[in-house]
Amino acid sequence: MERERTGLFISDDEFSVYVYKKLKSKGMKVYPISFTPCSFVKPRIFQLGDIGDILGYLKKEGIKKLVFVGKVPAEAILGKVHPSSDIFFKGEEPLCGENILKNLADFLKKEDIDVMSLTDVLYDELAEEKLYTDIPLQISEKRDIETGVRFIRNIMKYRAGQSVVVKRGMIVAVEGIEGTDEMIRRAGRYCSDFVVVKMAGRYKDERFDMPVIGPHTIEVLSEAGGSAIAVESGRTIILNSSKIVSLCNKNRITLIGIKGE
């Protein structure tokens, strides 16, 4: 029996490496595709907006399912795109990587190519509502998490960042186009012992860009001086959870899964 052919949209990051290896370990025949080069595998690279080339490749290879784990880089969104890019940028939704991929997925659906939900593909990696580490939350950290949750709920409709840094009730940094790790580094230039809150929110399409933390996130948080990270249960993906918990305990960082909306 021929192995299932699955297209995997990737970028050069920890999450893409993890999912690529996981799908391969399940015996799937994986076809990596991307808008940018990657160091861990050689993907088929497309120019953002070249819908004809993308569709032609998928049909030629007989790919009926796609998994999106990569990000659309900022320079691809804001820079020069292919002349046939209308399908990517249509509609009145805010311009962001998620909406670009959603438009692409809607188009591919009409061509009988389905985009799989990340929560289905990575069910075992979804955060639970619990305290993961040996280090309990301080009262001040609990209050800061509550502040962060309220803030994210208010901004998610604008497709702004999935993460926020809070200390003593003050919003220190909000994730922008640079991503979570750079937001944490930026916050660390102003303070230490801060809290990171990471959520998907009600508007998040589970096929694209779900909140993710991996060992590298914890390493960055430790270097920046953060003391706790709270992630939305059921909608945040935790990569290599045993390694993450070990890193958190070693660096005195609290990791907790919290209830979302």
Rank of each mutant, 00 (worst) to 15 (best):
R44H: 06
A228N: 04
C248A: 13
G52D: 10
Y158L: 14
F194P: 04
D12A: 07
G97N: 09
G27Y: 15
K157G: 12
V166C: 13
I135T: 15
D134Q: 14
L247N: 00
I213V: 15
T217P: 07
F151T: 13
M210A: 00
D114M: 10
G188V: 01
S241A: 14
F46D: 11
M183N: 14
I77M: 12
N249K: 05
S222K: 09
K167P: 06
T254D: 07
K59N: 07
S117W: 15
V165Q: 05
K42M: 09
Y123C: 10
L137F: 11
A228Q: 00
L58G: 10
K21V: 03
D120Y: 00
I253F: 09
L48A: 14
G148M: 12
I139V: 13
E261I: 03
K65P: 07
I184S: 14
G257E: 02
R252P: 04
K102D: 00
P215V: 01
V149Y: 10
E92M: 11
K110D: 13
L101F: 02
S227I: 11
F208G: 05
I258E: 04
E93I: 09
I253W: 07
S227T: 08
D53L: 07
S84I: 07
G260K: 02
K167V: 09
V231E: 12
G176S: 09
R235N: 01
S242F: 12
E2V: 15
P83F: 06
I113Y: 01
R5P: 01
G234Y: 07
R159V: 11
K198E: 07
K71V: 12
L8Y: 15
V164A: 04
M156D: 01
V19C: 00
A224L: 00
G225C: 15
L221W: 04
K157I: 15
G79Q: 05
K110E: 13
E98K: 06
K60S: 11
D106R: 10
G56S: 10
M183F: 15
G260L: 07
F194H: 05
D50A: 05
D106E: 01
F194K: 10
C96N: 09
R252D: 11
I256A: 03
S192C: 01
E141M: 08
A224R: 03
I238T: 03
C248N: 00
K60P: 12
I33Y: 01
I184M: 06
E223Q: 05
P136D: 14
D13Y: 08
E182K: 09
V81H: 14
A105I: 00
E261L: 03
I213P: 04
K142F: 10
V196Q: 03
I10Y: 13
D134V: 06
P215A: 04
M116N: 06
R153D: 09
Y57S: 02
R168Y: 12
M28W: 15
F15R: 14
S84N: 14
K102F: 09
